[in-house]
Write a protein that binds this DNA or RNA. Structure first.
Lengths: 336, 336
DNA sequence: TTGTACGCGTTATCAC
DNA sequence: GTGATAACGCGTACAA
């Protein structure tokens, strides 16, 4: 691999001049510029961005930590993050935490060692010490899919509480009273927890007694949703409607209901959360609480970039709008 | 940010010794080792992996170029690639080409400038000069979702031809004769092209005249599938069955059929290609040709890693098995 | 407009 | 077992 020095030698100039034609071509006379360019061709010179970063102390790299790229909603926000990052000359290193705090913690270390300039994190634990450490050390990071709306940490997210409330309310308005919730584990998803609060609050305000037996916490997976709903449906007093903490689980739940011989929406209404691109393409179309994932990725990255390089930054909390998208998995309660 | 020199000074040793306790602790006496470790704590020392890579000439980074992370099948292979990479101490930079040759080409340059040690590419153009350049320069790369089974380029893929054949054959066996194909554009997806060859061959072997009007090339998207099928279904002699070049399009097609008032599988059979995790969770379950995407990602990465660092390597072609997964979107032709 | 020389944080080589 | 020091490829004062 030829270096800037080889090019300089071939072109008969100094390395500084070569560096100039790379970074500030106008600062070099046209003649030498051309000469250098030819020399680069001859040497099949490849620019070394790492070496540059080494001296400028800028890696132009961002770290993105998500639970798993396998859930399409995270693919959407990832794409948003990547698109903006690339537009600004950044690349992103992707990492999956699998909703495990230890992995998240480990990944943060690994990525920092790699000199990422900032981190986009969908955190597993808002209260854990990893975020506090980042904060204390002044390392730039932004939370994605965040529940916070104040405090020292910058974040982009939606109001999960009101989202959970509206999802439940929609079911209540349809006449349902035995409304279950399939939740992601509260221990690793405060988003799920917030949605649950909204769910509970809505029940209370509508005079419906909260029944803990109707709430199942489980893994945020297709199989998890399928399994959980089967247990729910085989109970002695099964629900007539279910609010799923995300669309991904909801897909699993739909499948589980089908296998249990329960028709949707005739015998069971389902509301999801996220509105993955796919959710409007399945049949029946999934009623859900939409959160703008792609936008979230973009905005989070924009926010992060605005923090990078600045010694002091005012934390920003960007709460995006959710909306109830009514499709075909919800219907009026029969005999209700 | 404190460096190895700060630590050395505080511990009263040389930088070489600090480096040793990091990379080969046994080579240092227990006493000094402890002293250095304490000094690292005091300095809140953070290891700089980039600086190391700069001298060892190893970035421990891989580049992964896919069409788009938004298609869940690529999320699966990406996860496979990441999992193996991480196990081996590598991180991966993700990049989307959107099936565009120019972007692919540009990304290769950008990633190489960043000193990735190797590239995993789902290429848009097998014949383009970018791969030839990589080859000529001896840069390590492996093709994913590849159609090739010989030649100088290492690759992991499946037999798309036989996959296309079997998908079509399944429909023929069900009594269908007007079988359409929704294909990804041949210009950017030779996979799609190979599947089409299989499709054509199967028709021919079963005495079915090939009708070009039944083949629609289009974008590999949900909307693309939906749009294309509507055109097909509104023609004067519509198909009774459709082979979709991937599951993602197939989802779009199912939605398009529904909107056109055509019931699946009663009035229209659909076969996909890929078997995304979601495909078995939707309703009706998608009949499809399964390719092991997660495995492909892992295997491709393993292969790439085995190439890295070796000056000469024998190209390896790993063809994985596909399988026909019969679910609910295909049925016997009525009045057939 | 161009060149010289130093430094970035680490590893590797060679002494001791 | 430990230390001194030259690299690695590049940007950037500063000088010319």
């Amino acid at each position: 691999m030829s270096t800037i020095r080889d090019v300089a030698r071939v072109a008969g100039v100094s390395t500084a001049t070569v560096s100039r034609v790379i970074n500030a071509p106008e600062a070099v006379s046209k003649a030498t510029r051309e000469r250098v360019r030819r020399a680069m061709q001859v040497c099949r010179y490849k620019y070394n961005a790492l070496a540059r970063g080494f001296v400028t102390k800028r890696s132009h790299t961002l770290g993105l930590i998500i639970p798993t790229i396998t859930n399409p909603i995270f693919a959407e926000s990832t794409r948003g993050a990547q698109d903006l990052a690339n537009e600004k000359g950044y690349q992103v290193i992707l990492a999956n935490s699998d909703y495990e705090y230890d992995k998240e913690s480990e990944l943060i270390d690994v990525l920092r060692e790699r000199q990422v300039e900032g981190l986009l994190i969908t955190t597993t634990s808002l209260g854990g010490k990893v975020l506090q450490t980042l904060l204390a050390e002044g390392f730039p990071f932004v939370l994605l899919y965040s529940t916070i709306r104040k405090g020292p940490i910058s974040a982009v997210g939606v109001d999960n509480y009101s989202g959970g409330y509206r999802a439940t309310e929609h079911l209540v308005n349809l006449g349902h009273r035995r409304i279950a919730m399939l939740a992601g584990g509260f221990s690793f998803s405060d988003r799920s927890h917030h949605r649950w609060f909204g769910y509970k609050k809505c029940l209370a305000e509508n005079g419906i007694t909260y029944d803990p037996a109707l709430v199942k916490q489980g893994p945020y997976t297709l199989a998890g949703g399928k399994e959980a709903i089967k247990i729910l449906l085989s109970s002695e007093n099964p629900p007539t409607a279910i609010f799923c903490s995300n669309d991904y689980m909801a897909l699993g739940a739909m499948q589980g209901a089908k296998e249990s011989g329960v028709a949707i929406p005739e015998n069971l209404s389902i509301v999801g959360f996220d509105d993955m691109a796919i959710s409007s393409f399945i049949s029946p179309g999934l009623t859900t609480i939409r959160q703008p994932a792609y936008e979230m990725g973009r905005l989070g990255t924009e926010l992060l970039l605005s923090h990078i390089g600045k010694s002091v930054t005012r934390p920003t909390h960007n709460m995006l709008q959710t909306s109830l998208i009514i499709r075909e998995t919800t219907a009026t309660l029969r005999n209700g």
